Computed example of a mutant assay.
Amino acid sequence: MLSSGALRAHLLAAKLAGVVATPREESLRSYRLFGEGDPRVLLGLEPQGVWGEGELVELMAARCGVSPDPGYRRGPDAIDPERTLAALDAFAQKLGEAAGRGLPVLFGTGHPHRLVGFYAELADALSAAGCEVLTPAQGHRVDITTRFGVRTYNLDYVRGVALVREPGARGPGSETGVHSHSPLPIRVVLEAAATGGGPLPGLVVGDHGWVCGAGQLGFEAIGLADVDDPALFVGEVEGRVSVAVPLDDAVRSDYYRPLTRYVLNRACLSR
């Protein structure tokens, strides 16, 4: 069993919290773009309130622990590990509730290189607890507008976790995919589930557009978010994202394993 104190030490040592790799200037750029309504930063969320840079700095200080000083423009920023731990506890509670109710669950990630393993272990545990882990729209095409133009990707599932990859890019047992912020994949998945007559998710677990896109459509959604992803935290405070966990979402994949153990234990899903 991993204690809160031990996980807190790991968060700091692995730089999942504490001083993180995302610089302040990158976060401020995301806050400005969010306030301008840039879809690359909205991640499928349609904000109800007015969120300029100042309001987002205040929000992210409260939710993540970044510097609340609007005059701090360059340099490292930080995540308060106590806020990460509290959010992980809430995240675990939602997983435990889903298991207790036998809800269908959908997992999806825009960070497949880093986070497939984290979500896959959760998917395995929920499946063992009697939840159906949904995999609709396997192989469906998704056209996503990027800064390089419209790119065509295919939906795929690795160990029950949805992701997008370039056509023909998959190797045997590959867990790689495309880094994506887009909400279009979750929309394609939900449309396929609805038109196919299959169950719709009672809980969506993931990051980026998977969480915000699902929450915007009224599905309960929980996920992980870095300090330059304000959409999940706006969604949380506005009531469309149930839990947003602040942490660095791009460290080595094995650094997330202790989080998996902690969450499964807190959710009473350890095997």
Rank of each mutant, 00 (worst) to 15 (best):
L45F: 02
Y255M: 12
V150G: 09
G173R: 08
P172T: 15
A214R: 03
F107M: 06
R159P: 01
Y157N: 09
A225L: 10
D143V: 13
W210K: 05
L59K: 02
Y31A: 11
L33H: 03
F219W: 05
Q216F: 02
G177C: 12
G209N: 11
D229T: 10
Y72P: 04
L2N: 09
V243T: 01
L103M: 12
M60N: 02
S27C: 05
R252P: 10
E36M: 08
L217T: 05
R240D: 00
L122D: 00
A214F: 00
A193Y: 06
G65N: 04
A194S: 14
E236S: 10
A13P: 07
L232V: 09
R240F: 04
Q138V: 13
S180M: 09
L88G: 04
A137C: 13
A162M: 05
A6N: 08
L56Q: 06
G44Q: 05
G171W: 10
A193P: 14
S270Y: 08
A21V: 09
S3M: 02
A92V: 00
A221S: 15
T109R: 09
G197E: 06
D229H: 13
A78T: 11
D143S: 13
L33M: 05
A194V: 05
A129L: 10
V211W: 00
A9D: 15
E97D: 10
E220Q: 12
G198S: 13
A194E: 10
E25G: 15
A250L: 08
Q138I: 10
C64M: 12
S180T: 15
L259V: 11
R170Y: 13
G49V: 08
I144Q: 03
R63Q: 06
A21I: 07
P183L: 01
